[in-house]
Amino acid sequence: MIDLRLIIGVFFVIVGLLLLTVTGARAPLTPGPVNLYMGAVAIAFGAVMCALSLRSRRSK
């Protein structure tokens, strides 16, 4: 069985890295560098999912 946590983790790390390439983009009501914040959140979430997957693999 494939580990979905690893797939989701890698996906969000890539999404986060992509968002970090456009931190200067703004929309009319954007309060700040939201791509920077969301990029960081996506990478952190992805890293947690990858870590959970790796921990489970080690324990097996």
Binding site: A27, L29, M38
Partner: peptide, 12 residues
């Protein structure tokens, strides 16, 4: 979305 989301977040 149009008012709050810049390119990047809009794609997301």
């Amino acid at each position: 979305m149009m008012q709050f989301y810049p390119s990047g977040l809009l794609g997301l």
